[in-house]
Write a protein that binds this DNA or RNA. Structure first.
Length: 909
RNA sequence: GGGGUUAUAGCUCAGUUGGUCAGAGCGUUACGUUGACAUCGUAAAGGUCGAUGGUUCGAGCCCAUUUAACCCCACCA
C-alpha cells in the first residue's frame, strides 16, 4: 500500500467518517473470529447479554470496555481469542413493553391468548431486538458476531430445558407452596434477589386485641394493619412474666370477631414493643414460619393484584378445596366483607379508622422502615404464600463457595469475593417460576386423571402413567435461569461441540458489581453443576457510571449521557478512553461531556503526531528496527523509554489494571513522545546529516507504530486508521502483533544523559519565564558542565537551541569565572547562565538562588538524616542505601555550587 | 443489625507488594501561533495525604480507635 500523502491528512482528527468504514472492514475480514489452534490456550469472554428491550446507554459502554480491551490485547498477543456476544429475552421487561404496546391498541394479553401474544413478542423482537446489537457495533466491540446468540433461540432453549430436567431429576428443582415475593404490579412472583429494599416513612400502629378468657385488652404493634384480617394467632414469649397468665388463652380479633389462639413462640421478642406480636401466616415471612411451627391455618386476604379478597375469590378457593386440587399447604381465602375490593392502601385506612372507632387503636407512632420493592416496577412487594418452582440452593452453593475459597475463581478487585461468599453461604432457595408468558415455559406436565407430574426433555401430550390427557405448566422461568447458562449454552451445550470443548471454561467474566447475585453467582453454580467446571477463572468487576456530581444517571434527572450522541460528536475512541482511564477496578466512574472532550483532544494529539511523522518520511524506507550506531541521544532515550512503557503496559494488562495502563499511555504519548521526543527529533529531521535524519525517521516510525499498537485496545478506530498510513505496516493493526521490549534498546546510560539535558532545558525555560524574556528572543546559553557530561551536552546543542531558545551554547571550564549580568541556575549536570544584560537584577537573582539553595540543603539534611540513622543503614536494602548516598553527593554538590554563585553575586553588589 | 467502599491540590481522581523532598486531568495565573497539533506549547501558584494513637530505620500505603459520606446485605413485629 502506498503511503498516504500527508497533505491529504486533515489537520483535525474527524472520527465520524472513519469509524463505520473501519468497523465494517474488521467485521468483513473475519478479524473478530478466533484462530483456533490445537493445544494453544484460548482466551475467552462471554458478553453479558443486553436485554432486547435495551437502548444503548453509557452503562453498556462501560460494560463492554474492559472486555474489548482484554480481547484486543489477547488477540494481538496471538492467543486464540473469542468474545461471544448475544442478547437476553428479559422475560418481565419485554413482556411489559409488549403489553404496553397492546394497551395502545386497546388490547390485553388475555384478548390475544398465549399463542398470539407470543407471536406479537417475536414480532416485536424482530423489529427492536437487533437495535441494541447494531448500537454496540458503534462502540467498536470486537466480538465474534458469527457466534451471536439469543437466550430464547433454539439451542439455548434446549440448554435451559436440559438443565431444568437435570436439576429436577437430581431433586434440585422442586415445586411447592412457599412464602414468596409477589409483585402485585407485574403480577408475578420474583426471587429474593429481585427485591430491592427502600427506606420508607411509615407508622407503627399500636392496636388492642381483647382476650376472651380474661376480658383484658392486650397491646401489640404493627406496620401493616391491613393484614389483621388474616391473623390466625397472637404470639408471646413463653418466658415473658407479663403474660404468663395468658398461656392457653385466646383473643377475639376485632372487626371480624374471629377467635384465635395465643401461642408461645420464640419469635415474640420480650425486649421489643409490648412483647406481643400478631401472626399472619399467609402474608409475612416470619409469621409463616411461626404458623408452620404451631400448625396455624393460613388465611389469605389479598388478591394477586393488590386488593382485598372478596366473596368471589373466597368461593373460587372453596371450590378448589372441594375439588381436592388444593393442598393443605394452600391458604384459605377470606371474604373481607366491607373491605373486599379495596386496594391494600385503602384497606389500611379503613381498618385503622374502624379500629379507632372501636377504641382498639392505642396510638400511632411514626417510623421509617425498609420496605421491599420490585426491582422492575418499584412497587411494594407483598409476601404471599404461593405454589412455585424452586431451585434447591444448598447443594449447589457448596461447590460454588469452594471454587472461590480454593482460588479457582478470582475476583478483581478481591473485595467482591466477600460479597459473593456472603451471599452464596446464606442464600435461600431460588424461586424460578414466573407468572408470565414470554420466556422458557416450565417443562412440567400435569395429568388431571391420575394427578401425576412429569418433567420431560420432550413435550408430551399423554400421561406416561395412565395415558390421560396432560397439560403443561402455564409459567415461564426467571430470565436469569437462562442467562446463568450463558458461558456454555452459547458454545453449543448440551451438544458436544468443538467450540464447547475448546472454549470452556472461559477465561474472564466481566460485569458490573450490581449483578453479582443475579447473574455471576448463578453462572458459577450452574457451570459447576452442568459442566463440572467453574465457568471462568477471573471475575473482573466494574462499577456504575455516574454524572459529574456523582449521581446515578436516570431519565427523571435527565443527567444521562447518550453514547450515540457522544460518539457522533467526539468519536467512539474518546468515549471508550474516558470510561477507562484512571479508573480503579470495581469503582464507579464519573462521566461528563468535558471529560470525553479531553480524550477527544488526546485522539487529536495522536492524529497530529502521526501527521507530523508522515510529513517527515519523504524518501524513507523503514527497515523495521532501529540499529544503534547512528542513533542520536534523543533517539536512544526514546527507545529506552519505549521499552519501559511496553513492559509497563503489558504488566498492567496482565494484572487487569486497565485504568492504570490507560493513564500510563496517555502520559507517555503526550509528554514523552510528543512534547519531548518529537520536538527533539525535529533537530535531526531538519538537519543536514542524512544518517542522523534516517535514524530519527526509523525511531519515530518504530515508536509510533508501537504506541499505536499499545493504544489500540483502548482507541481501536484511530489507531487502525493511522496504522494504515504508516510506511512499513502490514495488514491491519487489529490482527498485528503486540509489541515487545527490545533488550538492545535499553540504553540506560544514554537515557540518563538525555535526562540531564532535559533538566537543563527545563531550568533554562524557567529562567527565561521568570525574567519575562520574550519567547522569540534568543539568547546565549552558557554551561559549566560536570566534566563527564560535557560531551553529551555538546551533542545536544541542537536541542538547547530548539527547546530552550538558545542562540548558541558556550562552555566554561569548572574553574572558569562565571559570566556577569547573567540569570543563572544550577542543575546536577551543569550550572547554566543566560546573559541578559540589563534585564538581570542582582537582588532578585540572589533571592531566587537562595530558594534553590534552601531546597538543596533540605535534601542534604534529609539524606544525611537517613544515612546517619543506624536503623536505616542496618536494615534497609543495600541498593537503597547506595541510592541515598548518591543523592546526598548530588545534593551536596548542588549546595556548594549554588552557595558559590550566591557569594559571587553578593560581591558584585 | 452485619458487611463494604471512600476521605490525597479549588473540582474529579491516580498513587500496584511501606523506601526517589506527594502525581495527573480540569480549573487558576503569566507568557506564547518558530509549518504536527490553540482540540496546542512553555512556565508558575496550589496539598501538615479526614483525625488520633501505634508498628517500623522509614507510613498516603500496615494495625487500632475515631469522624464523615456513600453502597450492599438482613424476616425486626
Amino acid at each position: 500500500m502506498e503511503n498516504m500523502n500527508t497533505f491529504e491528512m486533515a489537520k483535525v482528527y474527524a472520527p465520524k467518517e472513519m469509524e463505520e468504514r473501519i468497523y465494517k472492514m474488521w467485521e468483513e475480514s473475519g478479524a473478530f473470529k478466533p484462530k483456533m489452534v490445537k493445544g494453544k490456550k484460548p482466551f475467552t469472554i462471554v458478553m453479558p447479554p443486553p436485554n432486547i428491550t435495551g437502548q444503548l446507554h453509557v452503562g453498556h459502554a462501560l460494560d463492554e470496555m474492559p472486555q474489548d480491551v482484554l480481547i484486543r490485547y489477547h488477540r494481538m498477543k496471538g492467543d486464540p481469542t473469542l468474545w461471544v456476544p448475544g442478547t437476553d429475552h428479559a422475560a418481565i421487561a419485554t413482556e411489559v413493553k409488549v403489553v404496553e404496546a397492546l394497551q395502545k391498541e386497546g388490547l390485553t394479553k388475555k384478548d390475544l391468548g398465549r399463542e398470539k401474544f407470543l407471536d406479537r413478542v417475536w414480532d416485536w423482537r424482530k423489529e427492536y431486538g437487533g437495535r441494541i446489537v447494531q448500537q454496540l457495533r458503534k462502540l467498536g466491540v470486537s466480538c465474534d458476531w458469527s457466534r451471536e446468540r439469543f437466550t430464547m433461540d433454539a439451542g439455548l432453549s434446549k440448554a435451559v430445558r436440559e438443565t431444568f430436567v437435570n436439576l429436577y431429576e437430581k431433586d434440585l428443582i422442586y415445586q411447592g407452596w412457599r412464602m414468596i415475593n409477589w409483585c402485585p404490579c407485574c403480577k408475578t412472583s420474583i426471587s429474593d434477589a429481585e427485591v430491592e429494599y427502600e427506606e420508607q416513612a411509615g407508622n407503627f400502629w399500636h392496636i388492642l386485641y381483647p382476650v376472651k378468657e380474661t376480658g383484658e385488652m392486650i397491646e401489640l404493634a404493627t406496620t401493616r394493619p391491613e393484614t389483621m384480617l388474616g391473623d390466625t394467632a397472637v404470639a408471646i414469649n413463653a418466658e415473658d412474666e407479663r403474660y404468663k397468665h395468658l398461656h392457653g388463652c385466646h383473643v377475639i380479633l376485632p372487626l371480624i370477631n374471629r377467635e384465635i389462639p395465643i401461642v408461645l413462640d420464640e419469635h415474640a421478642d420480650m425486649t421489643k414493643g409490648t412483647g406481643v406480636v400478631k401472626i399472619t401466616p399467609a402474608h409475612d415471612p416470619n409469621d409463616y414460619e411461626v404458623g408452620k411451627r404451631h400448625g396455624l391455618p393460613m388465611v389469605r386476604v389479598f388478591t394477586y393484584d393488590g386488593h382485598m379478597t372478596g366473596a368471589a375469590e373466597a368461593k373460587e378457593n372453596a371450590d378448589l378445596i372441594a375439588s381436592g386440587r388444593a393442598t393443605k399447604d394452600e391458604p384459605v381465602v377470606l371474604d373481607c366483607g366491607k373491605y373486599a375490593g379495596m386496594t391494600t392502601q385503602e384497606a389500611r385506612k379503613a381498618i385503622v379508622a374502624d379500629m379507632t372507632e372501636l377504641g382498639c387503636l392505642k396510638k400511632v407512632e411514626p417510623l421509617t422502615h425498609e420496605v421491599g420493592t420490585c426491582y422492575r416496577c418499584h412497587q411494594t412487594i407483598e409476601p404471599m404464600v404461593s405454589k412455585q418452582w424452586f431451585v434447591k440452593m444448598e447443594p449447589l452453593a457448596k461447590p460454588a463457595v469452594q471454587v472461590v475459597k480454593e482460588g479457582k475463581l478470582r475476583f478483581i478487585p478481591d473485595r467482591f469475593e466477600k460479597v459473593y461468599l456472603n451471599w452464596m453461604e446464606n442464600t435461600r432457595d431460588w424461586c424460578i417460576s414466573r407468572q408470565l408468558w414470554w420466556g422458557h415455559r416450565i417443562p412440567a406436565f400435569y395429568c388431571d386423571d391420575c394427578g401425576s407430574v412429569h418433567v420431560t426433555r420432550e413435550d408430551i401430550d399423554k400421561c406416561p402413567n395412565c395415558g390421560g390427557k396432560v397439560w403443561q405448566d402455564e409459567d415461564v422461568l426467571d430470565t436469569w435461569f437462562s442467562s446463568a447458562l450463558w458461558p456454555f449454552s452459547t458454545l453449543g451445550w448440551p451438544e458436544k461441540t468443538e467450540d464447547l470443548a475448546y472454549f470452556y471454561p472461559n477465561s474472564v467474566l466481566s460485569c458490573g458489581y450490581d449483578i453479582i447475585f443475579f447473574w455471576l453467582a448463578r453462572m458459577v453454580f450452574s457451570g459447576l453443576e452442568q459442566m463440572g467446571e467453574c465457568p471462568f477463572e477471573v471475575a473482573l468487576m466494574h462499577g456504575l457510571v455516574r454524572d459529574a456530581q456523582g449521581r446515578k444517571m436516570s431519565k427523571s434527572l435527565g443527567n444521562g449521557i447518550d453514547p450515540l450522541e457522544v460518539i457522533e460528536k467526539y468519536g467512539a475512541d474518546a468515549l471508550r478512553f474516558s470510561l477507562e482511564i484512571g479508573v480503579a477496578p470495581g469503582s464507579d466512574v464519573r462521566m461528563s461531556h468535558e471529560k470525553i472532550e479531553t480524550y477527544r483532544n488526546f485522539a487529536n494529539k495522536i492524529w497530529n503526531a502521526s501527521r507530523f511523522a508522515l510529513m517527515n518520511m519523504q524518501g524513507f524506507e523503514p527497515k523495521g528496527v532501529p540499529s544503534a550506531d547512528k542513533l542520536a541521544l534523543s533517539d536512544k532515550w526514546m527507545l529506552k523509554r519505549f521499552n519501559d512503557i511496553v513492559r509497563e503496559i503489558t504488566n498492567n494488562l496482565e494484572s487487569f489494571d486497565l485504568g492504570m495502563a490507560a493513564t500510563n499511555l496517555y502520559d507517555f504519548i503526550w509528554s514523552n513522545f510528543c512534547d519531548w521526543y518529537i520536538e527533539m527529533a525535529k533537530h535531526e529531521l531538519n538537519g543536514d546529516d542524512p544518517e542522523a535524519k534516517n535514524a530519527a525517521q526509523e525511531t519515530l516510525i518504530y515508536v509510533l507504530t508501537g504506541l499505536l499498537k499499545l493504544l489500540h485496545p483502548y482507541m481501536p478506530f484511530i489507531t487502525e486508521e493511522l496504522y494504515s498510513y504508516l510506511p512499513g505496516h502490514e495488514g491491519m493493526l487489529i490482527t498485528s502483533s503486540w509489541p515487545a521490549a527490545n533488550p538492545e534498546h535499553d540504553f540506560t546510560e544514554d537515557a540518563e544523559q538525555m535526562e540531564a539535558v532535559m533538566e537543563i532545558i527545563r531550568a533554562a525555560r524557567n529562567l527565561r519565564a521568570e525574567m519575562k524574556v520574550n519567547a522569540s528572543k534568543r539568547a546565549t546559553l552558557i554551561l559549566k558542565p560536570a566534566p563527564a557530561l560535557e560531551k553529551a551536552f555538546r551533542a545536544a546543542e541542537g536541542y538547547f537551541m530548539r527547546l530552550a531558545a538558545a542562540s548558541n551554547v558556550e562552555y566554561l571550564a569548572p574553574d572558569a569565572p562565571n559570566p556577569e549580568k547573567s540569570a543563572s541556575a544550577v542543575t546536577p549536570g551543569a550550572s547554566l547562565f543566560i546573559p541578559l544584560g540589563e534585564l538581570v537584577d542582582v537582588d532578585k537573582e540572589i533571592a531566587r538562588l537562595n530558594k534553590d539553595l534552601k531546597n538543596a540543603e533540605g535534601e542534604v539534611s534529609r539524606a544525611e538524616g537517613k544515612l546517619n540513622n543506624q536503623g536505616f543503614v542496618a536494615k534497609a536494602p543495600a541498593a537503597l542505601i547506595e541510592q541515598e548516598k548518591a543523592k546526598l553527593e548530588k545534593a551536596k554538590g548542588l549546595v556548594l555550587s549554588i552557595a558559590e554563585r550566591i557569594k559571587e553575586l553578593e560581591s558584585l553588589k
